[in-house]
Amino acid sequence: MKTISSTLPERGILTSAYKQEIRENISVSKRATLSKMKSIIENHHNKVQSQTGTILQVSLFAIALVLIVI
Rank of each mutant, 00 (worst) to 15 (best):
K2V: 01
T3K: 01
I4L: 13
S5Q: 03
S6T: 07
T7F: 13
L8M: 11
L8N: 06
L8T: 07
L8S: 03
P9A: 13
P9K: 12
R11N: 10
R11D: 11
R11P: 01
R11H: 02
G12I: 05
G12V: 04
I13F: 06
L14K: 06
T15S: 15
T15L: 13
A17D: 03
A17K: 01
A17R: 01
Y18T: 12
Y18K: 10
Y18E: 06
K19N: 04
K19H: 08
Q20G: 09
E21Q: 13
E21W: 02
E21N: 03
E21H: 06
I22C: 03
I22A: 11
I22G: 00
I22M: 08
N25I: 07
N25H: 15
S27T: 06
V28N: 08
S29N: 02
S29W: 05
S29G: 01
S29F: 09
K30D: 13
K30I: 08
K30G: 04
R31Y: 07
R31P: 01
A32V: 04
A32E: 05
T33I: 02
T33V: 00
T33E: 13
T33R: 03
T33W: 06
L34H: 03
S35L: 07
S35R: 07
S35Q: 05
S35I: 00
K38W: 06
K38A: 05
S39A: 13
S39P: 03
I40E: 09
I40T: 01
I41V: 00
I41K: 12
E42T: 05
E42N: 02
H44W: 10
H45F: 12
N46L: 14
V48C: 03
V48Q: 04
Q49P: 01
Q49H: 12
Q49G: 15
Q49N: 09
S50I: 02
S50K: 06
T52E: 07
T52G: 01
G53H: 13
G53F: 07
G53L: 08
T54L: 10
T54F: 03
T54D: 07
T54E: 12
L56E: 12
L56F: 15
Q57A: 05
Q57T: 08
Q57F: 04
V58C: 08
S59V: 00
S59M: 01
S59Q: 01
L60R: 14
L60N: 15
F61W: 15
A62L: 08
I63M: 09
